[in-house]
Simulated scan of single mutants.
Amino acid sequence: MTQSILHKAATRGSADHGWLKSNFTFSFAEYYNPEKIHFGALRVLNDDNIAEGRGFGTHPHDNMEIITIPLEGAVAHKDSMGTEEVVRAGEIQVMSAGTGVSHSEYNPSETDPLSLLQIWVFQNKKNVTPRYGQMNLDEKAMHNQFAQILSPNADDAGVWINQDAWFSMGNFDKDVAQTYNIKKAGNGVYAFVISGSVTINDQKLDKRDGFGIWNTDHIEFTSNSADAKVLLMDVPMQID
């Protein structure tokens, strides 16, 4: 029997540090909700706004896949692997922390704000060699359909991670209907509405709402507005 969980935008955790305003779908930092720890292998879904010229100083991670999707502005990334890159809206970045990596993230602009999603996914292999990846998103491929932007396969579309997870994103006109087929048995899908309004499996969702579905092999999607932008995260529901 299909199961689901709804996380309305207003029920998320939040933090306001002045230069950083964050909303947390799952427990993170000082925000703890025992009913919102993770969705299968999806551990963190943070919706961050970072002020001009500010950011996170160097800090460590290990044994986690860290995915960053800028929505507005750009983030300057520097890490202990020697990577120095700027990731802009319209791109996706992944860092496989593995055995351990330190990095910093800043808004390099003195005039433009930075809005981004930071997502953590549990790895299916411990202590892998740390790795960095980045790519442009294909806006044409995402028009009125879900385009894959992340997978477990280095030779497949999008960036890749050490987990049987697939991310897809789409930008939709009003009244577009789609069926999304879950990629692997035992996976569920967590949908996050970046903008606009949509309906998934008869559940209406608005901007920044999240909706998890599992024990099914597909979901039914309809866009309710002309500015609907949605991220689907297809992840294992069981983690080791």
Rank of each mutant, 00 (worst) to 15 (best):
P113Q: 11
G133F: 03
R88H: 10
I69D: 01
A29D: 12
K21C: 09
Q163C: 09
D138I: 02
Q148D: 01
D155C: 04
A74R: 06
S27H: 09
S22M: 11
H218A: 09
D234H: 03
V128N: 10
D47R: 02
A226G: 06
G186V: 06
R131N: 13
H7N: 01
A76F: 07
P60K: 05
A226Q: 02
W19S: 04
L6A: 14
D112A: 13
N215I: 03
N144D: 14
I213V: 15
T129F: 01
G100E: 04
L20Y: 15
G55M: 00
S96H: 12
E52A: 12
A191R: 05
E65V: 13
H17T: 07
V230R: 10
Y32I: 12
A15N: 08
E30A: 08
D209R: 03
S223D: 12
V44S: 12
Q148W: 07
H59V: 10
N127S: 07
D155G: 02
L42S: 07
I37F: 14
H218L: 10
Q148H: 01
Q148L: 00
I194V: 14
A15L: 06
L20C: 12
N63T: 04
W160S: 04
S27K: 08
T222M: 14
V230C: 09
V121C: 05
V94N: 01
V44D: 06
N46M: 11
I69T: 03
F192L: 03
I200Y: 06
A141V: 04
F167P: 04
F24Q: 10
